[in-house]
């Protein structure tokens, strides 16, 4: 039997997303929990106008969570269920498996993104083609997060290790970077933090989303620069995932 990429991907999405969502609808709420917690805090204690930062951050964080979910699921399937070993010993290729898994995590994120998209329409001031900018940004961020999750998962031996790594990655990718607040707020604390934030691809993604929602000014040059950095980060992580991630144990 030769590989049928689309059929395989559809099967993995059904197994890993649609079936668990149907059997356990709480999974849907799970992806909304973190982004809404931040939004809630900003609504309660934030200054006027902070809410839209929470909406922009919610879009970014919801897509970013795909990466940590992917990392946990892949590690669980590899270490506990041994399903990855069954997939390795089959016509399914590593790229097909990870694409199916990444898309299934994306399916989980769709309800959250839909809610934040509606909120962004209510509270945001979309610039011309802003919706397209956000869509492209979130796709690039999904590629980045998925490649990161896959690469890390191949090196982890137990799902408990993901509990250790995920919060650290979360700090670097969603707390320090100005995902939920303007970059200037970070500069007020320390210029070094700004440089640290620039090292996180989510900073560039957040600037694009915030710009598209009319929260911060976004020039064409700035937009292209943000998109270029995000694209490069996604490409590098994708390259690392394709070359360094271990489908077969060495």
């Amino acid at each position: 039997m030769r590989e049928h990429k689309l059929r395989s991907i559809a099967a993995i999405i059904s197994m890993n997303a649609f079936l668990p969502m149907r059997r356990q609808p709480l999974f849907l709420i799970n992806t909304l929990a973190s982004p809404f917690s931040f939004l809630f805090f900003l609504a309660v204690v934030g200054r006027p106008g902070a809410l839209i930062y929470g909406v922009a951050g919610g879009l970014v964080l919801t897509v970013l969570s795909v990466g940590s979910s992917l990392q946990s699921d892949l590690t669980h399937y590899k270490a506990d269920l041994k399903y990855q070993e069954m997939a390795v010993a089959s016509p399914v290729k590593a790229s097909t498996y990870v694409t199916g898994m990444a898309l299934s995590e994306f399916v989980f994120a769709i309800p959250g993104m839909a809610v934040f998209a509606v909120l962004s329409v209510i509270y945001g001031h979309y610039i011309f083609l802003g919706g397209l900018v956000i869509f492209a940004t979130l796709i690039l961020l999904w590629v980045f997060a998925s490649a990161l999750g896959f690469t890390l998962a191949t090196y982890l031996a137990d799902v408990r290790e993901t509990f250790m790594i995920s919060p650290l990655i979360s700090i670097f990718l969603s707390v320090v970077p100005p995902v939920y607040y303007p970059l200037e707020s970070l500069a007020r604390i320390s210029p070094y933090l700004v440089w640290l934030a620039y090292a996180a691809p989510t900073t560039w993604a957040a600037q694009l989303v915030q710009g598209a929602l009319g929260i911060i000014p976004l020039s064409l040059f700035q937009g292209l620069e943000d998109a270029g950095v995000l694209l490069a980060a996604a490409a590098i992580l994708f390259f690392i995932a394709a070359t360094k991630a271990k489908w077969r144990e060495t």
Partner: peptide, 15 residues
């Protein structure tokens, strides 16, 4: 090889 084999790993569990 992979196109023609299948495996049940030791201690594997179903979803």
């Amino acid at each position: 090889v992979r196109e023609r084999i299948a495996v049940i790993p030791q201690e594997s569990r179903p979803f």
